[in-house]
């Protein structure tokens, strides 16, 4: 049976690695079905509605989309959990929660009302805390700091007195260069290097707010249900494969990019926020999350599920990954 689909991405076609999973998926699906099931992938430069993906998949203009769930925060605050939350789970923890905990079921519950099936679509791992023109040594340094930081993290920073500013992506570089803003957060070395922020801001802070950002595949329910079962399986298998692939793709790009930045700009300092600041961020995060949970039962349900899962999973992460890193640290010079 011949099936022709269209997929819209939030990103422009050249924004690797975020723009990589969808074309890879299309290629896999086409080959696995002997060319019978084709998916035409369109980047933001074609549909020109980067943040209209959910509406367009819901409305049927596209059968599929590739985006990130937290972009729908304004439509349903609960969607943030299916990307990442400040001080939340790592990529391994979150993937386990999604695939083997309650994650996928809760995600589907959230997107049912949009007439959409939602699947994980790749993970960026820990995102960096952002580029700063000056060092942050105390809470006082955050007061009045002009920073571009969207979403939940912006809410947290706003509570700490940061002057949260919206700047169009096209003007970010100029704004940071000229000091119109003092700091901004983007993704990680792999993507940041293309924006050139390392040339204009010397402090690169470690992440806290997006420990494992999951991307998202959206599929129009009606269209998916119409597919023969074998195509559904092909699609689901391919989605899982390209999701895993994106994690490594991004990991590799970031490792490469960081090596390059370090060599060309040896003066860039990687910093961890001071303890005082981090504690205040954590407290503010908890307040923000509790606040949403108090007024939104769905939000509360997912929040509780993540907290419970994370408590369990973190034990194992510590014993395994963290102790291993410490172990290998001990034997390296």
């Amino acid at each position: 049976k011949k099936v022709r689909w269209k997929l819209a991405m939030t990103w422009s076609s050249t924004l690797t690695p975020l723009a990589s999973p969808a074309p890879k998926l299309a290629k896999m699906v086409e080959e696995m079905t002997g060319g019978n099931f084709t998916i035409r992938v369109e980047g933001a430069e074609k549909h020109k509605a980067a943040l209209g993906i959910l509406d367009m998949v819901n409305g049927g203009q596209y059968e599929m989309g590739h985006s990130a769930a937290y972009y729908w925060k304004g439509k349903d605050i609960t969607s943030v959990f299916f990307t990442t939350i400040p001080f939340g789970m790592t990529a391994a923890e979150q993937g386990s929660w999604l695939y083997y905990g309650d994650g996928m079921a809760l995600q589907q519950k959230t997107f049912d009302k949009f007439n959409i099936y939602s699947f994980p679509g790749g993970n960026t791992g820990v995102q960096m805390g952002g580029w700063f023109r000056k060092e942050i040594n105390s809470l006082e340094d955050l007061k009045g700091l002009k920073m571009r930081i969207p979403g939940l993290a912006g809410e947290v920073f706003a509570k700490l007195g940061v002057n949260v500013t919206n700047i169009a992506p096209g003007e970010l570089y100029t704004a940071l260069d000229r000091g119109t803003i003092d700091a901004l957060e983007w993704v990680g070395p792999g993507m940041d290097i293309k924006m050139g922020f390392h040339k204009v801001a010397p402090y690169y802070y470690a992440g806290w707010h997006e420990p494992a950002s999951d991307m998202q595949f959206l599929i129009n329910k009606k269209e998916f249900d119409k597919l023969p079962v074998e195509y559904q399986t092909v699609l689901k298998t391919a989605m899982q494969a390209v999701s895993a692939d994106m994690y490594f793709d991004n990991f590799n790009m970031s490792a490469e990019a960081w090596a390059q930045i370090k060599e060309e700009f040896p003066n860039i300092k990687v910093k961890i926020f001071p303890k005082e600041v981090l504690q205040a961020m954590k407290k503010a995060t908890d307040e923000v999350m509790e606040g949403y949970a108090a007024e939104n039962a769905d939000f509360k349900e997912v929040y509780e599920s993540q907290k419970a899962y994370m408590a369990k999973a973190r034990e194992w992460t510590k014993m395994s990954t963290q102790y291993y890193l410490q172990t290998s640290e001990m034997v390296s010079e």
Binding site: G74, G154, E155
Partner: peptide, 23 residues
């Protein structure tokens, strides 16, 4: 029409902190 009613039914607001409601 659908573009507007979708936003209305879901009660869409700004996705940024301190942004405007009633999208």
């Amino acid at each position: 029409f659908g573009f507007v009613t979708d936003a209305y039914q879901i009660g869409e607001i700004s996705e940024d902190p301190g942004g405007l409601p009633f999208r």
